[in-house]
Design a protein around this nucleic acid. Structure first.
Lengths: 143, 143
DNA sequence: GATAGAGCTTCCCACCGTTGGAAGGTCAAG
DNA sequence: CTTGACCTTCCAACGGTGGGAAGCTCTATC
């Protein structure tokens, strides 16, 4: 099937399929006589695997690793679990940092009257955080 | 003061200070006779403002808006609060998505024996999500 | 005053994942 | 045959940051 149809049924855009091929995440597709890429149902399986992994937030490097294990019939489930657990730790850490941000902002917003007067504790904090009463805040930005 | 010293006392790297200047986030710095950038304490205030805003996860575009309000003596606190609240909503949404990812992965990892046998429900799910018992999952990747 | 080393300048490149677009070839339906 | 949808490759951009090269300037030491 076409790259367009493969994209439709796999949920991975044609652009990204070419990108993944170029970066060695997936092997080069077969070509028709006219140079069109040609995909099998197995290829679509692989693309769905990638799509699902991206949905779960795995990086392309991690997906590469997962694909290797997927193809390896004799893989050990511990290897897969290790990657998944590392991803969970990463998620939990990022969530914690974002929670801190949200908590700080909520505290500031709660202190801000939000009316048409110019006084604003949010700006006051941004200007000089240590002057303002607030909870502990994280160091280092996230996104 | 030097860009290096401004970077040290503001917590914004010299690289980023130049980047912010180039992108119009901050006005072009004064220059010494030899062409070095020269920063006042007020500039440092502004850089700290930016640093703090980045720490709280505001985008450069949002910081631009916040800086405008910061400089505007007659701003209304409601304008600032609006941006902060939008940022909080954004954070909460992203946190929710990442929670979903983590929950799904934890469910899968809990089902995975993690030993030296090849059977792995994590890979099984990645290959064919709907076959596997699991909680609802988000659509669309985050990071 | 010479010299060394740190610090400044501008410029370009890389990352990651994704999208957009241009220029040109190919397919299928009318 | 024409038209429009699809494919191909290539190049660029996004945001925010870091790395590094080539060349100039400052400061401390000799």
């Amino acid at each position: 099937m076409n790259i367009g149809e493969a994209a439709r049924v796999s949920g991975v855009s044609a652009k990204m399929i070419r990108y993944y091929e170029q970066n060695g995440l997936i092997p080069p597709a077969e070509r028709t006589a006219s140079g069109y890429r040609d995909y099998s149902t197995n290829d679509v399986h692989m693309l769905r695997f990638i799509r699902r992994s991206r949905d779960l937030g795995f990086s392309v490097a991690e997906i590469n690793e997962l694909l290797g294990l997927w193809r390896d019939r004799s893989r050990q489930s511990a290897d897969v679990k290790r990657i998944a657990l590392a991803r969970i730790r990463d998620l939990r850490r990022k969530i914690e940092e974002m929670e801190q941000m949200a908590a700080t902002l909520e505290h500031l917003a709660a202190c801000c009257s939000g009316d048409n007067r110019p006084d604003c504790p949010i700006l006051a904090d941004l200007e000089n955080p240590d002057d303002v009463d607030e909870p502990k805040r994280p160091r280092g930005a996230i996104n």
